[in-house]
């Protein structure tokens, strides 16, 4: 966040502008849908949130897999060893990214789980329907709540991080399974992600949708980066604190500013 301060602030301003723009397009400019009327507009932030949710959770799952696979330094020059050592040196970062991804994914999952029923009430007559997609979202939400529980209720040790990474990876591997299992229930969720544009043909609607998407993704990127920077700075802070204690005890510092794990 320090290194890319200007770019960061630029994106914040861009996001705010886009937000205002999206607001105009969604509520004032785009037409009302014939079938569902006003509630259809929920779709403009429901879908981007859902995609952001899966983005966040895949960031978490991807980082978790990386954290598990690249755990020890390798000798040699090959490409694989290079990739391995690259990630091994950045284990803390990878872990921080996993955590940030899960937290953000959950925030967007909450939005999805809130806006979905609003729409469902109008369209289906019920807030909740045990539809595949709803069930899938709910289960994934629960899995990653468990993930955060695991991280919150345990000391930050190496093994704990690895366990969390295990759950982060397994939880995501579960997604296709849940998908197929609940698909066999037969469902009512409109297949908006089916064909390009998600069944919207009206250009104004499409534009509103695209602007909404862009706003949401930039917001997602900013949040992820900010959350990640906090995790990183906390490490720095803890190190500085440890060094200070070392000095006060009259011992030379062991944890150098850039202690790199090896082996």
């Amino acid at each position: 966040m320090k290194r890319f301060r200007y770019a960061y602030e630029f994106f914040v301003v861009l996001m705010l502008l886009l937000f205002a723009h999206a607001f105009y397009w969604i509520f004032l400019h785009s037409p009302m849908e014939a079938q569902m009327g006003i509630v259809q507009k929920i779709f403009y932030f429901h879908v981007p949130s859902a995609i952001s949710m899966f983005l966040g959770l895949s960031v978490c799952a991807g980082s978790s897999v990386i954290y598990l696979v690249f755990s020890r330094r390798k000798k040699g020059r090959g490409l694989w060893a290079g990739i391995n050592n690259f990630f091994v040196e950045r284990r803390d970062n990878v872990d921080a990214l996993a955590r940030s991804g899960a937290e953000l994914g959950l925030i967007y999952a909450s939005i999805v789980l809130v806006t979905g029923p609003l729409w469902g009430r109008k369209a289906w007559g019920t807030y909740w329907e045990w539809d595949p997609r709803l069930t899938l979202t709910l289960l994934v939400f629960l899995i990653y709540v468990a993930y955060l529980f695991l991280r919150a209720f345990a000391a930050e040790s190496e093994s704990r991080k690895r366990i969390a990474a295990g759950l982060g990876a397994l939880g995501f591997a579960d997604v296709p399974l849940i998908h197929y299992a609940v698909q066999m229930w037969g469902g009512t969720h409109p297949n908006v992600m089916g064909k390009g544009g998600g069944g919207i043909k009206d250009p104004t609607m499409q534009a509103a949708f695209m602007i909404s998407m862009a706003t949401m993704y930039i917001m997602f990127g900013l949040l992820l980066y900010t959350r990640y920077s906090i995790e990183r700075q906390q490490v720095e802070l803890d190190r500085a604190y440890a060094r200070l204690i070392d000095y006060e005890l009259g011992e030379p510092p062991v944890v150098a500013a850039s202690a790199k794990p090896s082996q």
Binding site: A155, E156, S157, R239, Y241, A242, D246, V254, V255, A259
Partner: peptide, 8 residues
């Protein structure tokens, strides 16, 4: 070196 919870 072993650091636990940022404590060497």
């Amino acid at each position: 070196v072993k650091v636990y919870d940022r404590r060497p």
